[in-house]
Design a protein around this nucleic acid. Sequence first.
DNA 1: GTGAGGATCGTCT
DNA 2: GACGATCCTCACA
Length: 201
Amino acid sequence: MKQSALQVLSRDFYDRDPRLVGPDLLGKILVRRDGRRLLTGRIVEVEAYLGAEDAAAHASIGKTPRNAVLFGPPGVAYVYFIYGNHYCLNVSCLPDGIPGGILFRAVDPIYGMKAMFKLRGINESSDLRRLTRGPGRLAAAFGITRERDNGKDLTSSRSDLYIADDGEPAPEVLITKRIGIKKAADMPLRYIVPGNKFVSG
DNA sequence: GTGAGGATCGTCT
DNA sequence: GACGATCCTCACA
């Protein structure tokens, strides 16, 4: 894949309701530049998180130092640490002042798999699905941490983390309930590419 | 293939 | 002090 063929998604793309941004992100490319290494993967599973009306969303309790990015401008990385072990990557949506975001749950690795295995700390002979299936695994495979990436602008190719369109036609989208949460568990805010082996659950 | 249980710590009450 | 937008390992089938 040629990097020049990638069109970085603009801030306008994220300046919408997460319920519109979520399905549109499927099929797009997550890109990490790590020194000279390039890591890429096709997004196949995301979840939308809203504001005060969504009890499962971090933003539902109001603005705090932790979740401030969700209340800021669109197209910015929100990375949080969970269960004492894992990081999860989100991107903020909606205009400055209105909270909302998308959680990246899985990607289908395209380039840099060898480096991803190393970052994940697992052997290359293990099941490929273990590489980037699930939000914690995805973040680890792309070397994403709160310290390094929280608050980072995802709309510039000069950034070492961004999301791009490679021109592939949009995939089929299936909407389901979100998983791994207790509150507001019935809201249909999970978007997946049906049949893709990296989709979790 | 499925299910139980533990690890581990930042964040908010 | 309790909990969580998770993952791993180990039993067992």
